[in-house]
Design a protein around this nucleic acid. Structure first.
Length: 491
RNA sequence: GUCUCCUUCGUCUAGAGGUUAGGACUCCGGAUUUUCAUUCCGGCAACAGGGGUUCAAUUCCCCUAGGAGAUGCCA
């Protein structure tokens, strides 16, 4: 069988990480089977549609470097791939359902429906949903409503008796009493647009989709779709309902758990490699040990059988760990390029950069590379180089178990002994300073910590000898003067 | 309320009748290191509960409990 799968997002918001994962599972499944991956834009909700969302969809997958074989932008045999451009088909098939007695017009107002729902909830009614008031309207009644100018919706006539079942590769057979299926859902809205249920069945059929991989939240509408396939006399595709992605508290992953839109992850400084790798590991595994996979690996190795059934909690910590791993795999020049926008946003360097700034960047990358988990971490670790030491208390200069006078002595020594290192290589500079320290009888740790605090205003920094050279002679001496004044005020 | 799905360390997971229940993240130690980070070693930590089936259940079946999802003119 030639596998054909689709990702069918609705452009009503920014691409959610959960949606991205669904897309990835579809994509990897298609690739691993030598099949086709199709993008279909489900823009049937006129109210919530936005151009920005549509653009975000394209931006997201471009950033991930994931491409579809057929879609609105690349075309394909079954175009158009945008549902709003396929209205005629939906109209035709909705009409067919009506002609066959499988669907009917409904004139109920949304006010009445809402009231009905509220009552059902309040009374804890055992049946919840539409009361099928219009299911058996006579021609006269319909004519009366039409005369009032009410625009009807079309509802599917769900059988009241019997059972509907479908097979899921992962979950096995899923059975449901017809009486438990959502009573007569709307398949065509009063604005002439289809709802998801109708549109996806028709499109999946005509686009020859073979497998549907979608989130488990869709399970309840499975039987509904099967009823429609039967009504049309079509063969349903193979279903595979994917486990959902949850937040730490076990609820559906949402904004309050952290970033959820891919756009936010990008802004936070995640790499596409890390996102792709981590996100597919939530709900899928290869074996008992391997967990690093490139996109290309996954295109080969992905398999539906290894998908987990249980929902997975999205662990931001582990994602960060993956990200750090991938950052360390970058070459210095790649990383410089990746990190540059964050430096520019922080106002540390100009856009475009000057030669001098490039020079600093070039020296900076190797000493911060293994200190980054997110690209955006670059701002915190390099701030002192661009902005100077941050405000600090004089006490911070005093080494552990030492006096202010000890710190003063170190600073005095520092002011002269650092002078020669600006013309040396990093390793020479380090050797020189270490020897200076022992010659003068100081403790290396104490000595360098005083230097660190004076230069950065913090006890944490990248290697300080390398840092001081990037910082420059002028600024270093100025910082030492400031430190000296601070410490003298304590004596 | 009803229906459906799910249930191995805190988290992601391996396991598919017989294992000291394995790995990873997190956390805690230790080593390396001028701090932090990296790296390397080590440690804590799990089969939801109860019944069956079986010589033998984490693994198969049933029940209970817990969790989630659906119940829209949203997808």
């Amino acid at each position: 069988m030639d596998v054909r799968v689709r990702y069918a997002p609705s452009p009503t918001g920014l691409q959610h990480i959960g949606g991205v994962r669904t897309a990835l599972f579809n994509y990897f499944f298609a690739k691993s089977q030598g099949g086709k991956f199709i993008l279909r834009v489900e823009d049937t909700d006129q109210e919530r549609y936005s151009d920005e969302s549509l653009q975000d969809l394209y931006d997201t997958f471009k950033w991930l470097d994931i491409h579809w074989d057929e879609g609105p932008d690349v075309g394909g045999e079954f175009a158009p791939y945008v549902q709003s451009e396929r209205q005629a088909i939906y109209q035709e098939y909705a009409q067919k359902l009506i002609d066959d007695g499988m669907a009917y017009y409904c004139y109920c107002s949304s006010e009445r429906l809402q009231q009905l729902r509220e009552q059902q909830v309040a009374s804890k009614s055992s049946t919840q949903g539409y009361d099928r008031a219009c299911r058996d309207l006579t021609a006269e009644q319909r004519a009366e409503y039409e005369k009032q100018g009410i625009l009807p919706v079309i509802r599917l006539k769900v059988p009241e008796k019997g059972v509907t079942a479908f097979d899921d590769i992962l979950l096995g057979t899923i059975k449901r009493q017809n009486s438990d299926i959502s009573p007569d859902p709307v398949i065509m809205k009063s604005d002439g647009m289809p709802t998801y249920h109708l549109a996806n069945v028709i499109d999946d059929h005509f686009m020859k989709i073979t497998h549907i991989l979608r989130a488990q939240e869709w399970i309840p509408s499975g039987p509904l779709h099967v009823i429609m396939y039967k009504a049309f006399g079509w063969e349903p595709p193979i279903y595979c309902h994917l486990p959902m992605v949850m937040g730490k508290d076990g609820q559906k992953l949402s904004k309050r758990h952290g970033s959820t839109s891919l756009r936010d992850f990008i802004k936070d400084g995640y790499l596409p490699e890390a996102i792709i790798n981590y996100v597919t590991m939530v709900g899928w595994s290869y074996d008992d040990s391997r967990e690093f996979f490139t996109k290309e690996d996954l295109e080969q190795l992905f398999s539906i059988e290894k998908i987990n059934k249980a929902p997975g909690v999205f662990d931001y910590k582990k994602l960060q760990w993956f990200n750090g791993q991938y950052i360390r795999q970058k070459s210095d020049s790649q990383l410089a390029e990746l990190v540059l926008p964050y430096l520019q946003d922080a106002g540390f360097v100009s856009n475009p950069t000057t030669d001098k700034q490039n020079q600093i960047l070039f020296q900076l990358i190797p000493i911060v590379k293994e200190r980054l988990r997110l690209l955006s971490d670059i701002v915190a670790v390099s701030e002192f180089l661009f902005k100077g030491p941050k405000e600090y208390e004089a006490e911070l200069l005093i080494p552990k178990k030492k006096q202010a006078s000890d710190a003063a002595a170190i600073i005095a020594s520092l002011k002269s002994s650092i002078l020669p290192i600006f013309d040396m290589s990093d390793s020479d500079a380090e050797a020189y300073i270490v020897e200076e320290i022992s010659n003068q009888g100081f403790k290396t740790g104490d000595y360098l910590m005083v230097l660190r605090v004076a230069l950065t205003g913090s006890t944490v920094s990248p290697p300080i000898v390398e840092s001081i050279k990037i910082f420059g002679k002028e600024k270093s001496l100025a910082a030492l003067d400031v430190a000296e004044n601070k410490i003298l005020s304590l004596i």
